[in-house]
Nucleic acid binder design. Sequence first.
RNA 1: GGAGAGAUGGCGGAGUGGUCGAUCGCGCUCGUCUUGAAAACGAGAGAACUAACGUUCCGAGGGUUCGAAUCCCUCUCUCUCCUCCA
Length: 427
Amino acid sequence: MLDIRLLREQPDAVKASLARAGVEPQLVDVVLGFDEQRRALLFEVEQLKALRNTTSKEISTLKDAAIRDAKIAEMRTVGDRIAILDKQVAEVEANQMAAILELRNLPHDSVPVGPDEEHNVVLQTIGTPRQFDFAPKPHWELGESLGIIDFERGVKISGSRFYVLKGMGSRLQRALIQWLLDLHGNQGYQEVYTPFVVKELSLWGARQLPKFRDNLYHDAEEDLWLVPTAEVPVTNLHRDEIFDASQLPIHYCAYTPCFRREKMSAGRDVRGIKRGHQFDKVEMYKFVHPDTSYAELEQLRLDAEESCRLLGIPYRTKILCTGDMGFASTKTYDIEVWAPGQNEWLEVSSCSNVESFQARATNIRFRAEAGAKTEFVHTLNGSGLGIPRTMIAIMENYQNPDGSITVPDVLRPYLGGIDTIQPYTRK
RNA sequence: GGAGAGAUGGCGGAGUGGUCGAUCGCGCUCGUCUUGAAAACGAGAGAACUAACGUUCCGAGGGUUCGAAUCCCUCUCUCUCCUCCA
């Protein structure tokens, strides 16, 4: 959520910034129109309340019944007027809030301008794609022939976009989660385990609502929502809290499954485990001092890249253009890994600075020094990493001609020391 | 699921219609004392909007009243006991 004062004081700068992201800027004027109405109403109603407060105190000291009754009668009409104005204020406020929540965050000046993903800029490509002396297979073929991914039974149990991992498939996923949490722990992120279902308020705080309502699973009976990313519970961890500056920065990592209805991408990426309704992810999240948030973003990106590097998978880093960035983000890096079997780059991480966008919506503040005015913290989030796509990259990059998969060195201790994934044999 | 109790400032806990944005204790900050610390003593401090005056906030929402932390209604949450369950 944007700062209303920023809109009030620098409307043209805000509009220009939104225009860079391809957003029609009229909404700014709508918000400001409500703001003006609201403040005019507040001015009137607050004066009346001041009058009522002083007069009410006066009434309690009045001895003369006639004067007293006259004052009470007078205040009764004032009270009626206040009730009407209060109602109007609430209405205008709700309209203003609804309008300002529609506004996306302002892109940082360093972000390239462009309408869509075609205008994202590749910053670096690390690692050389392996040269195969056989035709590399896509992971769905490898997974089925090894018996570690079962698509048909996933669909039987839960429908399309669900799959079952078996044997070493399941273990590989578990190993990846644990290895990533350990790695990020060593990078200074404190591990947290959060609920996987949240109240609606938490989704507003992480700014998933109102925009992504159609992508969320909702339990109507309990009015709870399945998390689409760990970002949601972790953002809300410190809702309504005020930090001392000395407590910042706070770095967390969290594993959660993520649940997404994927209504927007119906029919896309239906093959394999690239885009399921349920997938696992390890997420990194930071609460930081505003002065450091862009330096923290660079480090966040390096920390995510580190996991790709250690896995020995070719990857590239992109900076997203203004039109392709997420709603809440001011600057986003995507990290993509190479998947030779399906011949494409797969997004495994998205690292964003959202500045105070979520902190304002969740009321997370800090005090620069004792007695100082509170300020909103900046928050950042980055995947580290999305598990299924990382599994795809491992399977496709490390595949052997016989269909087996070599286990990356760093994961071997997490898989009982084995070096190759072979078809299951009963013990 | 059944029965009961409760929700007040960082924490504990007063406050049952006006003098309450709220007694007090702990904790916190600053000062005095001390080589330093502790102790003692003194002073200070809630949040939001506002240029300011002022307004709002005692779980949330609504109501009664000239006036509500205090009375009424609804909701949410927490705790205790029983039941059930990993």
